[in-house]
Amino acid sequence: MIALLVRRTLFLIPVLLGGSAIVFFLIHSAPGDPIDALMGMYASPEAREALRIKYGLNDPLLAQYFRWLGLVLQGDWGMSIQQRVPVLPLVLEKFWITILLTSAASLFAAIVGISAGIISAVKQNSWIDHLILILSVFALSMPPYWLGLIAIFVFSVQLGWLPTGGLYSFSGQMELFDVLKHLIMPAIVAGLTPAAIIARVTRAAMLEVLKLDFMTALRAKGLRERTIVLGHAFRNALPTVVSMTGLQIGYLILGAALFVEIIFSWPGLGLEIYKSVVGRDMPMMLGLVLFSTFIFVVLNLAVDIIYRVINPRVREA
């Protein structure tokens, strides 16, 4: 068990190294000149060249990569070309804003998805099961950037209940209630697709357990149906559900949240990624992608460890 954890952790290194190399070379072989984005088309050639040298853009790629890697390990992630501030502090600041959104979205997705999955499995083939399955297909098929627009149109433009976007109101300081009002729509929109996937996985995992022999043994003990379903069947399905939920949270931080942040102007990593793509801000994009990769990989490792810890068949083997 311990050895396995060590091995899994060590595997982070090649993934991070390989991942960072892929991303680095990709972005650096991109067409288009970041200097254009920075200085505009009409800067003098001398000024352009000076800047190129300053950012090391003339060196061979491999050299650029290793120099960059060395700096990254020292915490120097370079400067954002567009915003002219160091990348790492900016990324870390945006990270917490994204975490706020993804935690809320994950909470919503987990609660809705797991409940729907359990109900669906227990009432297999009933109308409510069919309804949940159809709704889950709908939720899976709904582009978050579209759903977000509809939500804004209905709840902000038409009804005026909720703000159209941002983290907090312009006038006030960050007050809890104000932030919550800004949080609710993006969190639900971002959580809907993961909720659907979690519901489907939970249902499948529960059905696997519900057909096992020990269900009869549990009934023979005289247990209430609720205890059987929640205390035993779900407990058995939990490792599968947890690892799937964890994976979804990983995708959520970087996937659905990206679009949702754009739509709702939520000032997190996703919005920064969008801005760096549009502005061809390579150091920023590189830093964001690298940081996200790191989070993604660590989260996957954490999910794997939790899976093992809550699964006695693996833990005690």
Partner: peptide, 24 residues
Amino acid sequence: MRRLRGSRISMIFQDPLNHLDPVM
């Protein structure tokens, strides 16, 4: 009926391993 099960009438099964909760 549920109250009788396990208290007044109990049952044991052919394949004991599979009639226990694997994670309990």
